[in-house]
Nucleic acid binder design. Structure first.
Lengths: 154, 154
DNA sequence: ATTTTAAATGAGAAGAATTCTCAATTGGGA
DNA sequence: TCCCAATTGAGAATTCTTCTCATTTAAAAT
């Protein structure tokens, strides 16, 4: 994980931003959940801890945290933007039929990341990997699983 | 690429949907562009070829094509949903500061895909891989590029 | 070719999500 | 403690997406 509470807030401050209670709480909410949440969901939880928090602040803070690389947002399936702490390195299987999202871990990507740094001068802070397709429940019998989209050989 | 015009429309038809001019045109528009577009951009181009097309139809068709696995949507950076033909196997570097998206190719993923089929019974039709971080222009001097988020070894 | 019928469409209203505005508040340096 | 730019809350405004429903149409049946 890229940042615990202390590390994250420290980074905020180092970048010249104020440490407001709202920002603390939003960060805490993100930390306390192990799954991605919509802005609305995050705001709901923020208000439980800090009732006078405004929705706009949640949006503003999420944007700010995203720009600082502390938070990442993904957009799986039909739903709206979801946010989570950056650096969690989740990989998602998104079913196009039922919308189910299966998470899985992988350690294939470190090598690629380092290559990116070299080839493009790009500093990776987070990654979002989605495989779209059909889950076992939704797959129709007779569909060949070998019939994959990309011709890559790996 | 998963589907040329013929293949794609054939799949639509096989699934029991009608082959309307609108759907043809939307498919053509997606085919004729090599980059992902917002629904609004797609609709604009559709109307150039078929002026009385309605926006709702564009949305409906994009959803339909997505469910059929013919179109994929991604959400890079701040902007709204973008669509493109599925199976293009693009990989994106998204700069959190300037929003630039650098595309790159890779052939590391075929192996993973096949593993997914085996382990999860998941049939992959398309993939979206994003690495978030800072591009070479936006990286500040002194930032260590080795300080990557994930501890994976590859 | 004509008929038939459910699917698809266009137009604009409706609904959601996100951003903006601005007066009031506040964190944190001086 | 004082000060001031940064931040906030509230709700308006904007933008994106979906819905409604009367009309049109693809394509199967005749």
């Amino acid at each position: 994980m890229i940042s615990g509470l202390k590390t994250g807030l420290k980074k905020l401050k180092e970048a010249g931003f104020k440490l407001t209670p709202q920002r603390r709480v939003i960060f805490e909410v993100l930390e306390s959940s192990d799954k991605h949440m919509s802005a609305e969901e995050i705001h709901k939880r923020v208000k439980e801890r800090y009732p006078r928090a405004g929705l706009a602040t949640t949006y503003r803070t999420l944007d700010l945290l995203k720009e600082l690389g502390l938070v990442t947002n993904i957009n799986l399936g039909e739903e709206h933007k979801h946010y989570e702490l950056a650096g969690k390195c989740h990989y998602h299987l998104v079913c196009l039929r039922c919308g189910d999202v299966i998470e899985f871990g992988s350690n294939f990507f470190g090598k690629i990341e380092k290559g990116l740094s070299k080839d493009h001068g790009f500093e990776v802070t987070d990654q979002n990997v989605e495989f779209h397709g059909y889950c076992s429940k939704c797959r129709q019998k007779g569909e060949k699983i070998d019939d994959l989209a990309c011709g890559y050989e790996g």
